[in-house]
Design a protein around this nucleic acid. Sequence first.
DNA 1: CGGTAGACCTGACCGC
DNA 2: TGCGGTCAGGTCTACC
Length: 272
Amino acid sequence: MPELPEVETTIRYLTSKVKGKKIISISKSQKKLRKNLNFDDFESISQRKIISVERFAKYIVIRLDNDNYLLVHLGMSGRLKFYLNKNYKKEKHDHVVLQFDNFKIVFNDPRRFGMFFRLEDLEKVKIFFDNYGTDLLSNKIKIKDIYEKFTSKKVSLKQALLDQSLLVGIGNIYANEALFHSKLSPLRLTSSLNLAELTKLISSCKFVLKLSLKNGGSSINDYKSPDGTLGSFQRLFKVYQKKHVIFKKKSYKIKKIVQNGRSTFFSPALQK
DNA sequence: CGGTAGACCTGACCGC
DNA sequence: TGCGGTCAGGTCTACC
């Protein structure tokens, strides 16, 4: 589910609800997540105020007033949901509940690929994100550095876009959409790109991410922002799960292949 | 070291 | 109605 636009959408909403608010108590389910809070974490979290909610890679990073951090990753099916106390009734797959004064933030995740854990200071956070690449929504993208990283690898462009140590924020849907927008083939090798092509690819990534953000992310099956609002970017998909694409008033066939276990959709005629 | 299958899970959907 | 197969937005690991 959630790629960068969905994570950003969640964060923007969350910030408006929890910034400056105090966590009264925490509870968690017994079910195993990729990473889950320990009971020892509870005392470092409860009675703490939330200073900020920010994004690092596809993680939601919540800073507390004792410089502890809560890291949340939505995995494939995770959501953070907002409930006024009186509206909450426990649902299947609710795994973590943060209790505030008159509302709750609930981490719900059917497939449990998500993560919810604590890091005890900023240093730990920095170390955790040490290996991540350039954030595509950052204003300080250095094309030359990325070009070096790309050309020193010999993997398909599709795989490279999913590799968060190269570029941060693209997932399977947006990889397909960005490659189509750039008219580059997902099968091309990173080592074959020239600087102009990489520049085009990155600007296409930024374009699809920003467009999606503007539309509140994509709602496929189950993604919703914490208040239940649906995103609408899925209506703008050009190739993902499509059979044909219209380009300059002509229709082109979309081919579906599998690369590294993930579905790739592209137009062999238009993407070279 | 680099690269690639497989693992981790539940649920929705499709064909029989 | 039920059952089996396939597929899904993302990382990790184990192994060559």
